[in-house]
């Protein structure tokens, strides 16, 4: 908690010494992750800077609570930004439509909101039963039903489908019942 406040304050106050501490502590992990996932050194530097700006601006506006260490939170933010970049790169190759280029600030504003939505969804997935969470994680990661049957010990694919349907309904209800979803559903 003290560490979180320290780093967030350094960012808000534009304190280069504190920001250097953040770099020393966390950049190597982010760099390693991006290089292992189709990225280059420059991508790692860009993503890291974007994530720091995103966190600072969001903190300035809403003083949000980080439920993990600052290090883990920054790493996850970088990871999510990189996921988005990879998806975009994939869309650029497969989509023949003209891609609308969005202004950087607008794109970053959307990133903040997408991160908020992702946090809500993952938080709710963590809050349902361990069994449902496990089944849904397999399902969302495109595991074939026949493999879900084996891994989860269900009797049949039909049983797996019904179980996942029920778990998904539970998760959906919890997300929709949360106040935060009201402002995120129209995103």
């Amino acid at each position: 908690m003290i560490e979180q406040i320290h780093f967030l304050t350094c960012l808000v106050n534009n304190d280069s010494k504190g920001i250097m501490e953040i770099y020393t502590l966390i950049f190597p992990k982010v760099r390693k992750f991006i290089l292992q996932n189709k990225g280059q050194q420059q991508d790692a530097e860009d993503i890291f800077q974007k994530a720091l700006i995103q966190i600072t601006v969001r903190y300035k506006r809403e003083k949000f609570k980080i439920n993990s260490s600052f290090e883990a939170y920054l790493f996850t933010t970088c990871k999510n930004l990189w996921r988005k970049e990879l998806k975009r790169a994939k869309n650029r190759v497969t989509n023949s439509d003209i891609i609308e280029l969005v202004a950087t600030e607008r794109d970053m504003a959307l990133n903040i909101m997408e991160q908020k939505r992702w946090e809500l969804f993952t938080e709710k997935l963590d809050s349902i039963s361990e069994n449902c969470k496990k089944a849904l994680t397999l399902f969302f990661n495109k595991t074939p039903y026949k493999d879900i049957v084996k891994k989860m010990g269900y009797n049949s694919e039909t049983a797996a489908r019904q179980r996942i349907f029920k778990c998904k309904a539970k998760l959906s209800d919890q997300i929709k019942e949360d106040q935060r979803y009201n402002s995120l559903k129209t995103l």
Binding site: V57, R61, K87, A109, L110, T122, N141, K142
Partner: peptide, 24 residues
Amino acid sequence: LNNTDWSISKNSNHPEVKEYEKLL
């Protein structure tokens, strides 16, 4: 909730998006 995908939003008219854009 897929580990490799991402839900991209396009609603740049969302009031909160506008607010963040201004701050950025």
